[in-house]
Design a binder for these strands. Sequence first.
DNA 1: CACCCGATTATCT
DNA 2: GATAATCGGGTGT
Length: 217
Amino acid sequence: MTAKILKRPFFERDSHVVAKELVGKYLVRKLGRDGKILKLSGIIVETEAYGYIDDQASHAFIGLTKRNSVMFGRGGFIYVYFTYGNHYCFNISAHASAVNAGAILIRAIEPVNGVEQMKEFRSENELLNLASGPGKLTQAFCINAKHNGCDVTNHNSDIYFQENQNQSNAVICTKRIGIRKDTDRYWRFLLANKEGDNIYINKYVSKKKENQDYKIC
DNA sequence: CACCCGATTATCT
DNA sequence: GATAATCGGGTGT
């Protein structure tokens, strides 16, 4: 029996709730390659939530524009944007109501299936460096501007999310990183393992130095 | 290993 | 014309 795909209702909740719950789930990328369908997959180990009018760091803060329009549509659609002249960032729209807006930035993934293909896409052999950052994971999973606006909630999607039967037992949160405004809210979520009183953060997260100030959530 | 800085372009004002 | 939800290479310790 295959794991369940995350459907529309999962994404139509407050973005910080969705961001927290996406941690530990699988991302699956179906790819046509040499006449066959190749599946790349991995466990989401780091996300960030972005909101609407109360969140100055969010692309939606300025109101509806051509670029951010997916953040204003229904939950469960892909928002990809190009930044710093080099990198794509992969987001999924999420908010609780039709008059809201928001998205989740997928920041890091622990590679599981299709590792050799990811290494080729990245020109990089080190497993820890394949998808441990938002720009790295789009390259490893071959996600780009053509995916903007795609629905992830059915099996025909090239990109979708799956439940994880063996989900880890802890998620921690930190302040969001790489932003200039609204830097104080704890809307960055990391996968961790709790063993007794000890917390171990997943080693595939990005920017390990910025993980010091965290809370258990 | 930590810090610093340049690259490079779509998007919005 | 300014900005940016980043990355990787270079330098110095």
